[in-house]
Design a protein around this nucleic acid. Structure first.
Length: 412
DNA sequence: GTTCTGACTGGCGCATATAC
DNA sequence: GTATATGCGCCAGTCAGAAC
């Protein structure tokens, strides 16, 4: 249909939202296009979506299902997360069987218990989310959920920290070691090809890795007898580990899993101190002079680095590695000072490649759109970040524009 | 006090590598 | 050749710290 006012567009959208269940096919919104050719030329295009056309999505589909159990998973930092195990239900063409409940206060706030009927949705049409409990008259409910008093993985007494529950057994908890190992070898960390969740768990379970440093002692011969490994895969992983004995300082810092140090803070620290020794010797006051680090973060970083067990562990890792490479100076680089946010899938780049190119040329990739963001790069099927970019007046780039920016910066 | 930002966590689909 | 396991890509919610 052709509309001449915003009200007409909203009315059309509303009618389709109401009738979508009667259609023979699955839709998640309507596309609005400008039919003024001059206007189209002014607005330009993205690689998938012209700026003169936008997908106006419906409210996420909601379905009702029952919580069969609330399980508790232990994360890399020892955080215990309640997870709703759901009776599988199809939501927007996808079967959903699990949804994070985040923390005990969230469970309490929503008053969710095992056996409850709940309304779920896929936030942003992606992430399964328990929206609310659906009351059932006359049904006797199970007891309120309580976080376990002991870690379900290592049986250590847990601690309550704000809304979170943590297992303090950082070094003895197999779950934390497995996830720490995965993090160490992840893309943002040492980027060890072939070291994913399952492999890391296998290495810990089989006793090949009792602490991070053990990773560098593993040979193809150790791996071959393991389930899922054969000669080629064992050789590949052993070689991948060997190749990462020389890595960038920022990757190493990120991989260590220092509290409050994610990829951004790791890169900042690496750029500022340019050696691990420099960071290790920095006082809290010195750390606080670094952009983005305040007193609480500096205390946490200092506490991690001062912990005797951590020092031993890091020393053991460094003893088995060859070199930590300091980042190049970024001043004068083409993307220095620019912040990029991605939404939607790119055709010509993976996110990782795009991030690497940006960072190699002095720019940064951040996770959320704010007034500080320089560009929001939009690919196919963008998420809510595009809307936020528009709201804040942030410049939006399609993939072609992004390539041009990279070319201008000498990154391509 | 408010806004901005990043850390952390987890789910699902798909592509790919690998084992059998 | 087929089946399966694994990793990757993408994204959102929650929270807390930093900055203003």
């Amino acid at each position: 249909m052709r509309a001449t006012t915003v009200e007409e567009i909203l009315d059309y959208h509303g009618r389709f939202a109401k009738d979508r269940d009667d259609l023979d096919f699955e839709i998640d919104g309507v596309v609005i296009k400008l039919d003024d050719m001059d206007g189209r030329a002014d607005l330009g295009e993205t690689s998938h979506h012209p700026r003169w056309a936008l997908a106006y999505k419906f409210e996420p589909r909601k379905e009702i299902t029952r919580i069969e159990k609330i399980a508790v998973s232990v994360g890399r930092t020892g955080k215990l997360t309640p997870v709703a195990l759901l009776r599988p239900v199809e939501v927007g063409g996808v079967t959903v069987s699990r949804a994070s409940l985040h923390n005990r206060e969230e469970v309490s706030r929503k008053d969710i218990r095992e056996g409850d009927l709940v309304r779920i949705q896929r936030a942003g049409d992606v992430i399964p989310q328990v929206v609310e409990r659906v009351p059932e008259a006359g049904r006797r409910r199970k007891a309120a959920f309580r976080m376990p008093e002991r870690c379900p993985e290592c049986d250590t007494q847990v601690q309550e920290v704000g809304p979170f529950t943590r297992c303090p057994n950082r070094f003895g908890c197999a779950a934390q070691l497995k996830r720490g190992l995965t993090h160490f070898g992840s893309r943002g960390g040492l980027d060890i090809e072939g070291l994913g969740d399952e492999t890391a768990a296998l290495l810990v379970d089989r006793g090949l890795v009792k602490e991070l440093a053990d990773l560098f002692e593993i040979t193809a011969g150790d791996l071959e007898p393991l389930d899922g490994f054969a000669q080629k895969s064992a050789a590949n992983l052993a070689q991948a580990i060997e190749d990462k004995k020389t890595v960038g300082l920022a990757r190493f810092l990120y991989g260590l899993g220092i509290p409050e140090v994610g990829s951004t803070v790791a890169a900042t620290l690496a750029s500022e101190f340019r050696s691990f020794e420099g960071i290790q010797e920095a006082t809290t006051e010195r750390l606080e002079t670094v952009d983005g680090i305040g007193p609480i973060m500096s205390e946490q970083i200092r506490a991690f680095l001062d912990d005797e067990r951590n020092r031993e562990r890091i020393s053991a890792v460094l003893g088995r590695m060859e070199e930590l490479v300091a980042p190049e100076q970024e001043s004068g680089k083409g993307l220095a000072g620019m912040k990029f946010v991605f939404t939607g899938g790119l055709e010509g780049f993976s996110r990782a490649d795009a991030k690497r190119l940006i960072e190699e040329h002095g720019g940064r990739v951040v996770s959320s759109v704010s007034g500080e963001t320089t560009y929001v790069v939009v690919g196919g099927d963008p998420g809510s970040k595009l809307q936020r970019a528009n709201d804040l007046g942030i410049e939006v780039l399609n993939e072609g524009d992004f390539v041009a920016v990279l070319q201008n910066a000498g990154a391509l």
